[in-house]
Every structure is written in C-alpha cells, then in structure tokens.
Design a protein around this nucleic acid. Structure first.
Length: 286
DNA sequence: CCGTTAACCTGAGAGC
DNA sequence: TGCTCTCAGGTTAACG
C-alpha cells in the first residue's frame, strides 16, 4: 500500500504523537509478520524513551534515547493507529477513542501513558527490526539508493545507473537500490508526466528524459505529500485521516479513460510488467 | 554480476 | 447469497 508519500505522512503524525515519550508496555498478538518479531522485542522496548522519528525510503525509523533503533516497514497493508485515552468526567472511567478502530489484525500494541499505538496489517508483509547502534542501522540501509529529494539523485547518478541496463525503466525506478521510496503508483504517474513509455529499456532513455524523470519524481512526490498521500482502498494517516492524492491521479487505475493531456486523443491502457499493473497512454508516452 | 519468477498473506470485488 | 477467480500501494529468496 504505502509508498514514500504515505510513509512520510505516517511518520509525521506518529512523530507528533510519540516523540520524547516513554513506551510503558508492548503487547504482541501475532509475531508472524514478514519476518518473525524478535523474541526480546517487547522487553527491549519497554520503558524506552523516543528521541526521534524519521523516514528513510519506505521505512520509519524510531530512535531511542538509549541509542537503540527500531525500524518498521508497512509492507502492502500495514497501518498505524494512534488511539487516545479519554476519561469520562462523570463516571471517571477511562476509554480509548479512535475514529474507526480496526477489529482484526491488530498485531502489536505500544502502550503510552495516555494513548496507545496499534500496528495493524492484514496481509502481514510489514515487519519490525531492532538495531543496537547507528552503525548497525547504516549497514542495513547500505544498499538503498538515494532519496528522490536528495542532491545525490541527479542526472549523472541516474545516467550512470541506467545507461547499460536492459531492464525496462519502470522496473528500474521500482528498484529501491536505484532510488528510494518509489512504488507502483508513483512510477506510473511520473512516467506519464515525462511522456516516457514504461517498457523502454534503461539504455534507451535519452538524457533529456533522465532529467525529466528526476524533475517529475520531485514534483509528483511533493504534491502527493502535500495532499496527505493516496488513499485508494484503506490508507489513512496515524490519526485516521484519508489522503487526497488519488483524486489527482492522471493514469493510475484509469484503464479505458481518455488521456488527460490536452490535444492528445489517446486512451489509457493497462498491462502487466513483472506481475505489476502498468498504465500508459499509447500515443503520448514514447 | 544480471534478469526473471515465485513466494509470502488476506480481503475486496467481479462474474457466474 | 455464495462460490471461484483475480487483483492489490512491496520485498526478496532462489533460480538460470
């Protein structure tokens, strides 16, 4: 489900809620995520104080005062929920309040003093990992490519990465070791803006097109973050709010529609590239 | 090294 | 209603 903009949105809302707070207790209902949760997971995190929350690629990184790191990935269907504890003034009873609490697949609960965080993930492709130090963390992320917004993601970098590639540009851009954080929706959208055929080989992409890919990666992702991400099926930020970037999709999920480009008479077609759906206008994407 | 495929899971929606 | 089939925002182990 989540690509860079959605993960960024989750990170922002999560950071506001948990930064500088102490985890009082961790309760695990199901350890069988993408990777089995470490046996010491609950104990390691109990009573730890959070000193920062950040994002790298599609990962959220929680840093603790003690120097420990906990990272997690949402996979395809992971969601994070902040649930505030309210106290009824008449009965003095406390209860948790959330716009819509999921009933199933709540695998992990992080209990704080006046709220709790729930990790929900129906398909269980998400996962958590612990690292004892920054060095360990850096080793884990060593292969990940540059963030699309970073100066490292520039013309020379991308040109050298793709100039000899036989792989199609769509799959190149989905490769997290080339550039971090792009996923199926945003790669489809970016290539439409660039007027580039997703089937084109890396070696066939012109220098002009490389520059466009970099520029539109930045533009599309920035607008998506500003829109709160894309909520197609069930994406919500940690406060339960939907994003709105899905309303701005040009081609994703728009099979059979007319090309949204002015003066283009093309139709949007759908096809598969390595088992993942691709959309394009056959006339203006070359 | 490179590129391709299958596998990991559940649920929603389409078609019958 | 209900069955069966396809598809979904991601990653990675295993193979040639």
């Amino acid at each position: 489900m989540p690509e860079l903009p959605e993960v960024e949105i989750v990170k922002q809302s999560l950071k506001r809620a948990i930064n500088h707070k102490k985890i009082r207790k961790v309760i695990v209902k199901n350890r069988n995520l993408r990777f089995k949760l470490p046996v010491n997971f609950e104990k390691t995190l109990q009573d730890k104080v959070i000193s920062n929350v950040s994002r790298l690629s599609k990962y959220i990184i929680i840093e603790f005062k003690s120097g420990l790191f906990c990272i997690f990935h949402l996979g395809m269907s992971g969601t994070v929920h902040i649930i505030k504890k309210k106290i009824d003034k008449i009965t003095n009873l406390s209860f948790y309040q959330y716009k819509q609490v999921p009933t199933r697949h709540n695998h992990i609960k992080f209990i704080f003093s006046n709220f709790k965080i729930i990790y929900n993930d129906p398909r269980r492709f998400g996962f958590f990992k612990l690292f004892k130090s920054l060095d360990e963390l850096n080793i884990y992320f060593k292969k990940i490519g540059p963030e699309p917004f970073s100066k490292k993601f520039n013309f020379f970098y991308l040109y050298n990465k793709i100039k000899n590639k036989k792989k199609n540009i769509k799959n190149i851009l989905l490769d997290q070791n080339i550039v971090a954080g792009l996923g199926n929706i945003y790669v489809n959208e970016i290539l439409f803006y660039c007027k580039v055929d997703p089937k084109k080989k890396g070696s066939e992409i012109s220098k002009k097109e490389i520059k466009k890919i970099i520029r539109y990666s930045n533009i599309v992702l920035k607008i998506a973050i500003k829109s709160g991400g894309s909520s197609i099926r069930d994406f919500k930020n940690a406060n339960g709010d939907n994003g709105s970037f899905q309303k701005k999709f040009k081609i994703y999920g728009k099979k059979g529609y007319a090309c949204p480009r002015n003066n283009c008479k093309g139709k949007i077609i759908k096809f598969f590239q390595t088992n993942r759906s691709s959309y394009m206008c056959q006339i203006c994407q070359k």
